[in-house]
């Protein structure tokens, strides 16, 4: 090895890095290094802490009843808001719609996302994969509200779909403002989430395993049922949980595509906070939603495991 010339200097970036390292050493000495992990998750802990504080405030508000003579919350605590919410048939209807809708949307989304994710993982031609990715991400980058608005235009009485139908002699029909439109909008919104969560699970299934199942006598549907689906279960559970919780708490799609009569719980909460100014009842509803969602997710965890969301914590 030839010796570097005496006037050799390391590049500026290297020297800057040295400086940064020395600075880091002074601010956070080596002896603290076993705590470095904590240092990095401190922001996250603070954020979660704030969230908990917020929940406590909401909990406090939920116990106070609104006085319509002064429009101030009561001084004393009571469970009136909870009783009111549980006794109301409106909220029961809305809660049932949210829950059943979330289940339906989850199932439909997984059914649609699975073949899409499968194609993404298995397709050999790079340009097809790219096309699939772009098709997936393009709507992902368009916000939920804009997309819902797009559906209003496309599915409206004089929108593209009805125009196309009229070409084949079908009279314009109401495609929007009903339960179906809300489910459709939600499935369309959730699809990329589900695909993205399924892809890692499917990537983990070697193609050879499918080939093997075929050579052992399994036809395509049987490979899917006996091999692919069970092996993709962690991904399906992970994707299902994310889609379910996002749908259960969704606001924009039911508000925009539901025509006002397809409220989800979030819409009912919004109404209490912003339309009737009853923060107590709104808080009670919000906490009940949090509780219901947590219980359901907990049940899934208990029955099926956490899927990919377990992050390898449990086998």
């Amino acid at each position: 090895m030839p010796n570097p010339s005496p006037d050799f200097r390391y590049p500026l970036r290297w020297r800057l890095m040295d400086g940064v390292e020395r600075l880091a050493d002074t601010l956070w000495p080596r002896s603290m290094s076993r705590h470095t992990g904590w240092l990095f998750i401190t922001p996250a802990i603070l954020l979660v802490g704030l969230l908990v504080l917020g929940l406590i405030q909401i909990g406090d508000a939920s116990l106070r009843v609104l006085d319509t003579a002064t429009f101030l919350p009561s001084e004393d605590w009571s469970l009136t808001n909870y009783r009111k919410a549980l006794a109301s048939s409106t909220y029961l209807t809305v809660a049932w719609r949210s829950l059943s809708g979330a289940v339906l949307v989850t199932v439909l989304t997984l059914i649609l996302a699975f073949p899409y994710a499968y194609a993404l993982v298995r397709v050999r031609k790079a340009w097809i994969r790219k096309a699939l990715l772009i098709t997936l991400f393009l709507p992902f980058f368009i916000g939920q509200v804009v997309r819902a608005y797009g559906w209003l235009i496309i599915l409206g009485n004089s929108g593209m779909v009805n125009e196309a139908l009229s070409l084949v002699g079908v009279a314009p029909m109401r495609l929007l403002f009903n339960y179906g439109a809300v489910v459709f909008g939600l499935v369309q919104y959730m699809l990329p989430f589900a695909v993205l969560l399924l892809v890692p699970a499917l990537t983990a299934i070697p193609e050879e395993t499918e080939t093997a199942a075929g050579s052992l006598g399994a036809s395509w549907p049987r490979i899917l049922w006996h091999v692919l689906l069970p092996m993709a279960k962690p991904g399906l559970i992970g994707a299902g949980l994310v889609v379910f919780t996002l749908t259960l708490t969704d606001f924009a799609v039911p508000a925009m595509l539901g025509g006002g009569s397809q409220d989800y719980i979030a819409n009912a909460i919004y109404d209490q906070f912003f339309r009737t100014a009853d923060q107590g009842l709104g808080s009670a509803l919000a906490l009940m939603l949090v509780a219901a969602g947590s219980v359901l997710v907990g049940l899934v965890f208990m029955v099926f495991g956490a899927g990919t969301l377990a992050m390898g914590g449990r086998k």
Partner: peptide, 27 residues
């Protein structure tokens, strides 16, 4: 393939990790 009377042992074995030994062989 699934109608041929051919058994194959694969390079990476391609066993079904979600099944027991018995279930793999019964498949």
């Amino acid at each position: 393939p699934h109608r041929r009377s051919v058994g194959m042992v694969f390079q990476k074995l391609a066993l079904f990790p979600h099944m027991t030994v018995e279930e793999n062989v019964a498949f």
